[in-house]
Design a protein around this nucleic acid. Structure first.
Length: 265
DNA sequence: TTATATGTTCGATA
DNA sequence: TTATCGAACATATA
């Protein structure tokens, strides 16, 4: 489930639910250790007896700083999420790691498909220096967004899904913004005008802010959000005579309203 | 049984 | 060398 808004909501758990609480124990529940990018020992030793003092999010990447100065880095892959719970006797299904706090609350890293990653970083600056992670979508300047895209030949949707120039857009948000602005996902970046690119950015930021405001509960999203109709044959109320079509762009399932999203001649 | 899934990375190719 | 594309990763659900 995790695109930028989901990760922002999960960041809130560190800021509002467990901030400054001492960690009393850590449970590891991935038998094949797929999601532990640092060793379990290193994760355990850096969490127990410490507390979380500060957080940072870049796109879909979440960092929480510990009282010993190190950082816990979480990435949620396709199916990861964080759940707060207090029941002492049951863990959410597919929990891969559970952090216990002094007040009895627990934070579960849940990830059925195990594309997620948990690791300890000595320094956030060092991490940024060695990874091609762009600016967070919510703070990139419009001119930088345009520069990153205007000369590319790949389909606009494929470029939106990269994280190296600006980070945070995932598959449903890409479809959502392209629908809103009325651009076909296969349109080559370099055929879009500067104005269209800037409109896309505005739309993306607005979509993210709305989703965060609703705590990413899909059911609470505005009725005209495309994600509510994002399946083959569905009918968006603004386009009653143009059924949603599915295609593959950039290797990902993609949905469009053909009447609104046409390739340029 | 087969297809698909809200992500990232790596290797092949142009 | 750089840009792009497709496959692979591991597992659940329809």
């Amino acid at each position: 489930m995790p695109e930028l808004p989901e990760v922002e909501v999960m960041r809130g758990y560190f800021e509002e639910v467990v901030k400054d609480l001492q960690v009393t124990d850590v449970e590891f529940l991935d038998p094949l250790d797929k999601v532990y990018k640092s060793s379990k020992e290193e994760i355990y030793n850096n969490l127990v007896d410490q507390s979380f003092i500060k957080t940072e999010r870049i796109g879909k990447y979440l960092f929480a700083q510990l009282s010993n100065g190190k950082w816990l880095h979480l990435h949620f892959g396709m199916t990861g999420s964080l759940e707060v719970f207090t029941d002492q006797y049951s863990l959410p299904r597919f929990t891969r790691m559970a952090i216990h706090f002094e007040d009895g609350s627990r934070l579960a890293f849940v990830d059925s498909r195990k594309f997620g990653k948990i690791e300890i970083l000595d320094s956030l600056e060092k991490y940024k220096g060695t990874h091609t992670l762009g600016e967070d979508l919510l703070s990139i300047k419009p001119d930088d967004f345009v520069m990153a895209l205007k000369d590319r030949k790949i389909p606009i949707k494929a470029a939106l899904l990269e994280q190296k120039h600006f980070a945070g857009i995932g598959n449903w948000i890409a479809d959502e913004m392209l629908f809103e602005v009325g651009i076909h996902p296969e349109e080559p970046c370099n055929k879009l005008t500067e104005k269209e690119l800037k409109t896309l950015l505005k739309s993306a930021v607005e979509i993210c802010r709305t989703a965060i405001r609703k705590d990413t509960h899909y059911g609470d999203f505005p009725d005209d959000f495309f994600v509510n109709y994002r399946k083959e044959g569905a009918v968006h109320p603004d386009h009653p005579h143009s059924k949603v079509e599915s295609l593959r762009v950039g290797g990902r399932g993609t949905f469009i309203v053909p009447e609104k999203q046409k390739l340029k001649p």
